[in-house]
Structure formats: structure tokens, C-alpha cells
């Protein structure tokens, strides 16, 4: 406004000489009393909740702090992280192949993926986990070889540890969802992009790797981030096959001491901590990938 001040006003109005006085008038906003009341009520409610949980002896905060960093809980936490990372990596790798098969022109490849998704998304994960855990009963030995030919090597059923059963169940289930996410990301990249890349002489794999995939990631990464957070919590299902991840470790303690609530709080604190860290990481990754697509960069 300062530059405007130097020029003569284009539409002189009554009292034009007193510009500065009119410009410095103070603006008064109205207070919303309804909102004030709602905020007060909310504050009281939240304060009450915190007060209650802090002072209620049933929460046994001393027990919570005693176990929060105990060896058995930390070991369980580590197993949970391992399960999350490995099954997400495996699930994503399988998902990439499934997505490429879905995008292929070959009808048989597409049908295979359709059946795969139907099976793994249509049955509860809990059922799949118990199934893989019991696979040793179903097939005590698995001969790996050519159909009708010689056996190459033999997997004995006992070789499927609970950890492997858990990984298998989580990863296969996850891959069905990741396939869908990856396919969606690839389809979201305009055809003009791969055409332009082809036209400058890139080969098909180069086009995928240098042009399509980096842009698809912009769609894939946020969705995958959500899947990781979901997976972190889903690993707790694995407690049913007695694999000592975070929840099962807490359970083994309270089975002994009957301090159920405090130990569930211990587990929850760790789940929340990891989720929060993941969310921060997701934010920065999305920011980096968004370059060239936001209206401000």
C-alpha cells in the first residue's frame, strides 16, 4: 500500500485529504461464544480422562514403567519390527510382479493374478496364519522338483518355524493388496510419458525404471506408508501361533502376573511410538516425491 500512497487517488472521495486516518481504522472481530463453550467442555473432559487414568490404581503406572524397557518386551518389539519390515519387503516385491502381470497383455497371467487376489483377500488373515502354521501337519515333507521328475531337495515340515509361517502368511496376504496399489500407481502415470520416453529411444525396462516408476511412486508411497502402519499392528495377530512378538510377549508376562491392563498399555505405548515415527518418515518421503507435481515447488 505504501507505493499507492504516493500517487494521487484516482477516485477522489469526500474527505480525500484524510487518507491516513481512514487506513488506520482498527478491525474488531466477533468472538464465538458457542465455540468457546465447546472448547471449555472438551478441555474439562480430556483433563478428567487424564486425571482418572493417572490416579486410578488399576492402571498401575509403576508396573507399566517397570516393564516398558524390560528385556522380554524389547525382544518382542524387535520381533514385531522384523516381521513388519520383512513381510512388507517381500509383499512389495511379490506385489510388483503381480502388478506387472496384471498390466500384461497375456490373458493367462491376468487370470492367475485374479485368482491369487480372490484367494488371499477373500479369506481372513487369521485363518491363513493358522493354516501356514499347521502346514507341517498337512505336508510333513515338501519335495521340490520338476513335475514327474527327480526331486531336487526336500523341505521337512518341521523346517517351517512359527516365524517363517508368520512371514509367509503376512507377506502373501500383503502382496495381494500391494499389487493393487502398484498397478494403480502405474496406471496413474499418463501414457504420454512412456511414449515420449520410447520416442527418444529408451528400452522398455528403462522407460519403466526411469520414467514410469518414479512418477508412480508418488501415488504408491503414501498408500504403502499406510500399509506399513497397518502391518505393524496386524503383526499382533501372529500371537495366536505363539510367536513372541510384542503382544505375545506382553501376554506371557501377564499370564504369570495378572497385570493385564498395565502390560497392554506397555504394548500400546510401543505400537504408538513406532507408528508416530513411521508417520514422520512418510511425511518427508512424500514431500520429496511430490516435486514437479505440486503447484508450489
Amino acid at each position: 500500500m505504501t507505493t499507492v500512497n504516493k500517487e494521487a487517488p484516482r477516485h477522489p472521495s469526500p474527505g480525500a485529504g484524510k487518507r491516513s486516518e481512514r487506513e488506520s481504522l482498527k478491525i474488531v472481530r466477533r468472538t464465538s461464544y458457542g465455540r468457546l463453550a465447546a472448547d471449555t467442555a472438551l478441555a474439562l473432559f480430556v483433563f478428567g480422562l487424564i486425571w482418572m487414568s493417572a490416579t486410578n490404581p488399576n492402571f498401575q503406572w509403576d508396573v507399566v514403567f517397570k516393564y516398558l524397557t524390560s528385556a522380554i518386551i524389547l525382544k518382542g518389539l524387535w520381533t514385531t519390527i522384523e516381521l513388519t519390515v520383512i513381510s512388507m519387503v517381500l509383499g512389495t516385491i511379490i506385489g510388483v510382479f503381480l502388478a506387472l502381470m496384471m498390466l500384461s497383455e497375456d490373458r493367462w497371467l491376468r487370470s492367475f493374478v485374479a485368482a491369487y487376489k480372490w484367494l488371499f483377500r477373500g479369506t481372513p488373515l487369521l485363518v491363513q496364519l493358522i493354516f501356514w502354521f499347521n502346514i507341517s501337519a498337512l505336508y510333513p515333507e515338501i519335495d521340490v522338483g520338476l513335475p514327474g521328475g527327480e526331486t531336487l531337495f526336500t523341505l521337512s515340515g518341521n523346517a517351517i518355524t512359527p516365524f517363517m509361517a508368520a512371514l509367509l502368511g503376512l507377506a502373501l496376504h500383503e502382496s495381494a493388496y500391494m499389487a493393487e496399489i502398484i498397478r494403480g500407481g502405474i496406471l496413474a502415470v499418463g501414457q504420454g510419458q512412456s511414449e515420449a520416453a520410447t520416442a527418444i529411444g529408451m528400452r522398455r525396462l528403462q522407460v519403466y525404471w526411469r520414467i514410469t516408476l518414479p512418477q508412480a511412486l508418488r501415488v504408491i508411497v503414501p498408500a504403502t506408508g499406510n500399509q506399513v502402519i497397518l502391518m505393524l499392528k496386524t503383526t499382533s495377530l501372529v500371537s495366536v501361533i505363539a510367536l513372541p512378538e510384542l503382544l505375545y510377549s506382553a501376554q506371557t508376562i501377564y499370564a504369570r502376573t495378572f497385570e493385564v491392563i498395565p502390560l497392554l498399555i506397555v504394548a500400546s505405548i510401543w505400537y504408538l511410538t513406532i507408528c508416530s515415527l513411521l508417520s514422520v518418515g512418510q511425511y518427508f518421503l512424500e514431500h520429496k516425491l511430490g516435486r514437479g507435481f505440486r503447484s508450489t515447488n
Binding site: Q193, A199, G201, R218, F293
Partner: peptide, 26 residues
């Protein structure tokens, strides 16, 4: 072969109606 086809395309420039610049690159 795909490789030969790509190599031949490399010597022919193409400019599109909708530019088709790589959106993730400067």
C-alpha cells in the same frame, strides 16, 4: 528385436501435441 527398434527410434525426434515433458524432472 526390442533393442534394435529402440536404437533406430533414437535417431528420430518426436514432438507431441501435449508436450509430454517428464513431469518429475526439471
Amino acid at each position: 528385436r526390442e533393442k534394435e527398434a529402440a536404437a533406430r527410434r533414437a535417431h528420430i525426434g518426436m514432438v507431441f501435441q501435449h508436450f509430454n515433458l517428464f513431469a518429475h524432472k526439471t
